[in-house]
């Protein structure tokens, strides 16, 4: 499985120059509005990671992977691990950049930086957790469309619920603020495990 993770990370290395280009552009933008920097590296890491699926699909890699001494289960698992490693790298990177920008503006609030970065990373991980099973089921192109439709749908649904059922969002926000260091990891673990189990089930029945 280590080899499969290496393969995804080496592929990303091959695409790194585009990622860096993106990043430079966004850092320039974020000099105007610092808060944007929290989202960008993790978001880019997701976009780049999705391209590994595209290349896998284009070069029919999975057939070759299955013929190697790795189980189908490990092929799926390695995707999750590689993507999380990448997000982790993006998080570290974001923290460093945020500190540098903070230094420039002589305004460092370390706690705020960490909280923001973690929430951004968590939302990207959840997004990926929704996306991966869809990609395994429908392929990268359709999977990508499904995710946009899906996210929009969920946003609409939440808006609808809040408006019609008189839910007090403020209570929730206060609660979340107090316990986010617990809520985030627990949610992430649950979401990732469910996502992995669904992806695995799809992949075990897939033919290439």
């Amino acid at each position: 499985m280590k080899g499969l993770i290496k393969k995804d990370l080496l592929m990303i290395k091959g695409n790194l120059k585009y990622a860096l280009l993106f990043l430079v552009v966004f850092i320039i933008i974020s000099l105007e509005d610092v808060s944007i920097i929290y989202y960008i590296p993790t978001f880019i890491s997701m976009m780049i990671f999705i391209t590994t699926f595209s290349y896998d699909e284009y070069n029919l890699w999975d057939a070759y992977a299955i013929s190697m001494p790795v189980s189908r289960k490990d092929i799926v698992k390695s995707k999750y691990i590689a993507s999380i490693i990448l997000i982790f790298i993006a998080v570290i990177f974001t923290i460093i950049i945020s500190l540098i920008i903070g230094l420039i503006y002589d305004n460092i609030n370390f706690q705020e930086i960490i909280a923001n970065v973690l929430i951004c990373a968590a939302s990207i991980i959840i997004l990926e957790a929704i996306m991966f099973p869809l990609i395994y089921k429908f392929g990268v192109e359709k999977g990508r469309i499904t995710i946009f439709v899906g996210t929009f749908g969920i946003a609409l649904l939440i808006g609808f619920l809040l408006k019609n059922f008189n839910v007090d969002a403020n209570n929730f926000i206060v609660f979340f603020d107090k316990y986010y260091y617990l809520i985030i990891p627990i949610t992430l673990i649950i979401v990732l495990v469910i996502s992995y189990l669904i992806s695995k089930k799809i992949y075990l029945k897939k033919e290439f």
Binding site: K2, G3, L10, M11, D56, Y58, N59, P69
Partner: peptide, 23 residues
Amino acid sequence: LDNSFFPEILCPKDLDKIMKSIY
């Protein structure tokens, strides 16, 4: 295999690094 191989953005040297951890 016919048509199926490593993703094309890798280079032969990368394959060595990957395969070392697979076989």
